[in-house]
Amino acid sequence: MAARIILNPTAGNGKAQKLFELIQAHLPNDVEVVRTTGPGHATELARQVADQEDLTVVSLGGDGTHHEVINGLMPEGKTIFAVLPAGTGNDFVRTLGYPKSPRAMLDVALYGAERRIDVGRVNDEYFLTVSGVGFDAEVAGWVNQHEKKGNGTWIFLRGILRHLVHFQAEQMTIHVDGAFRSEPTFLLAAGNSPYYAGGMKICPEADPGDGLFHVVWVKDLSRLGVLPLLTRVFRGTHVQHPQVKTFQTEQLTVEGPPNMLVHADGEIVGHLPVTMTVIPAAIRVRTGRS
């Protein structure tokens, strides 16, 4: 077996199943396809083969599926990891230079160049893109419950508008390199890669190969100030706003109200307090860039 494809047939409201049907005829004989049957199953299927150094594990689904798979492959990190994107946001693949056509994507997933990337960890949960707390985590929780009612960025925008009415900034304390600071906080995002929520460039300087998080800390905002700032997130220019602080670090701890949700790769993974850590060059990935 040269590769195992872990297929989440329900991802992207059926997009994953449709993509699989397009590539099925082109699969080599030494590629095994296994299907998930519910939440957490992709992690189990990945963990079964996590110690096989010559194997490529391909996650066919959305960022939530990729999140489950990477949690099955870590902490060993021995296999090669690849994705076939078919979800709501498809943010992780934006860093890998994958082509658009299904056949070309399959070729990259199975035979593309190898690159080592960092993986983030928030407490005991691993992540590929961004972990955050505050407004974006509350939106992520809502999107996870309602994503069957919309696709891509639109479902995230619905969640944003819905939560703007009631969300209040909360006092949070950030610990970095032995120092700490407390501020009323709208959101804090620690990026291993730049994108979340269907193409929002929340951490524009994040690079999954530099061993650091790009942290974006948004202080308290008026409700009238939130939407203009969010429109700038797609270009990454929100970091120029006076209420936004950015820095890079290998590790940070966030404390605050214990009811505050924490997300990683758009999946809710717990509540405050949390410690976020970069694991440098943790796993090999297939990439479309040489």
Results as ranks from 00 to 15, higher is better:
G141D: 08
Q240P: 11
R289T: 14
L221I: 09
I202V: 13
A109Q: 12
K219T: 10
L60C: 13
L252M: 05
G134Y: 09
Q243D: 07
L22R: 15
G97Q: 07
A137W: 07
I160M: 08
V274M: 11
L110Q: 00
K15M: 13
Y126L: 02
I23V: 13
Y111M: 12
L157W: 14
Y98F: 15
H163T: 07
L73N: 00
R47P: 02
V218Q: 01
V218I: 15
E44K: 15
R158S: 01
R47M: 13
L60F: 04
V285R: 01
L128W: 06
G120K: 07
W217C: 04
M276L: 15
T56S: 01
V93A: 13
I5Y: 02
V143L: 08
I23P: 10
D136Q: 05
A190S: 00
L212P: 01
P28I: 00
W142I: 01
D63I: 05
T56D: 04
T79C: 15
G198Y: 01
G120D: 10
S59K: 08
G225Q: 07
R94N: 05
Q17I: 15
D107Q: 12
L7R: 02
F20H: 11
I160F: 08
T287G: 10
G236Q: 01
V122P: 07
L221G: 02
E183P: 01
I279H: 13
A104I: 03
D124T: 12
F135N: 03
A50K: 15
I283T: 08
A189Q: 08
E267V: 10
R181G: 06
F156M: 07
L19G: 04
Q145F: 12
H238C: 08
G120F: 05
I70T: 01
M200H: 00
S222V: 00
V215M: 05
A137V: 04
A42T: 12
K15F: 10
G12A: 03
I174Q: 04
D210P: 02
F20Y: 15
Q243H: 12
A25Q: 12
E267F: 01
L188R: 13
F234D: 10
E44S: 13
V239E: 08
E32I: 09
V216A: 00
R35D: 09
V31K: 06
G199H: 05
N192T: 03
R4Y: 12
L55Y: 04
G87M: 07
T95Q: 06
H26M: 07
V83P: 04
Q145L: 09
G191T: 05
E205Y: 14
E114C: 12
T231Q: 03
Q168C: 00
N192F: 06
L188E: 08
Q17N: 00
M74Q: 12
V33T: 09
D207T: 13
L187A: 02
Q145R: 13
V83H: 08
R4P: 08
R286W: 04
L212F: 11
R94A: 05
T95L: 00
D118H: 11
G141Q: 02
